[in-house]
């Protein structure tokens, strides 16, 4: 592959911009998501809020479930593996999913290392809370980044924190000379060469999407205006009163995020109330998914 061309793995992420990626747990939900205008679906055994409730160890979804969802979907299908669980990732590649999410929503398998994603043909998306974490994941081969947020809470505050933090750190890097940049690389634990690229581009070298806690059309519009290029919606859709209407409204708000009149229209079309939200301080520290991985 030439140096002149954008990596094929990132290329697919480029095609998902401006859209909504929805968590689905059955083939039927996958059809609802596709009909509502999702750009991709994330095949899961349980949505994050149910993972939270169920407790115990959350693993990769059963292969049959992922295959069933792939069979009914004409849009890309993503699936999650545990942080550091490269054998689960190998299975997902074998199944032929279009994207793997090395995700903190599942119970981490390795507390020390994330997966070396360069070794895979399937592209990976990973979560990050700050610029250093994002560049470490990209250094390992992630082709797409997303905020971690706090999944399953219906509370947008963590996703906003992560998006703001990354934006602020990128701005800081763009004003630095080479000597300052090396110091910054050390401080945030980022690969220097990647940080140099960020300084050149004024943004991450791969697309950055928002995830974790998006529960309303306005939440989606907020993330997009803060610079997210697409939104992942997990529990928000299928834990709402009317998933079909909810999914359509979020798609509409995301496509027209910069037009408040259309986001308002979308907000009136919900057909019910959003999922119940959780205040982050109600969650015990060890149960906070955003803290998993480094």
């Amino acid at each position: 592959m030439g140096a002149n061309i954008i990596d094929l793995k990132t290329g697919l992420a480029e095609m998902l911009k401006g859209g909504v990626i929805m968590d689905v747990v059955t083939a039927e939900q996958a059809k609802i998501a596709e009909d509502a205008g999702a750009v991709a679906v994330m095949a899961l055994e349980r949505v994050p809020s149910d993972i939270r409730k169920a407790g115990g160890v959350a693993r990769m979804s059963p292969p049959e479930l992922i295959e069933e969802i792939m069979k009914v979907s004409s849009i890309p299908v993503m699936a999650k593996c545990r942080i550091g669980h490269f054998a689960e990732a190998q299975l997902l590649q074998e199944i032929g999913v279009d994207y793997i999410d090395e995700s903190e929503v599942l119970t981490p398998a390795d507390e020390q290392y994330h997966i070396n994603k360069h070794g895979f043909k399937v592209p990976f998306v990973c979560g990050a809370k700050n610029l250093g974490e994002a560049l470490r994941r990209i250094g390992e081969g992630a082709a797409l980044m997303r905020t971690k947020g706090e999944p399953g809470t219906g509370n947008i505050v963590e996703a906003v924190r992560h998006m703001r933090r990354i934006n602020a750190e990128i701005k800081k890097a763009t004003n630095m000379d080479e000597a300052e940049l090396m110091g910054f690389a050390k401080d945030i634990g980022a690969p220097f060469e990647l940080l140099k690229i960020v300084r050149e581009l004024g943004k991450l070298p791969v697309p950055n999407f928002a995830a974790g806690g998006i529960a309303t059309p306005a939440d989606a519009a907020l993330c997009m205006q803060l610079g997210a290029e697409t939104v992942f919606v997990g529990s928000g859709i299928f834990k709402s009163d009317n998933p079909d209407k909810f999914a359509k409204a979020i798609v509409k708000a995301t496509a027209h995020y910069d037009d408040p009149a259309i986001v308002l229209e979308a907000s009136k079309e919900l057909g019910g109330v959003a999922m119940r939200g959780t205040e982050i301080s109600e969650i015990d520290e060890p149960m906070r998914m955003a803290n998993r991985g480094w």
Binding site: M15, L16, K17, G37, A38, A40, K248, A255
Partner: peptide, 15 residues
């Protein structure tokens, strides 16, 4: 542009 034709088709009709 590129993207998902399913999604584009649905949004063209819905909007």
């Amino acid at each position: 542009p590129g993207g998902e034709s399913t999604t584009m088709l649905k949004l063209i009709e819905r909007f």
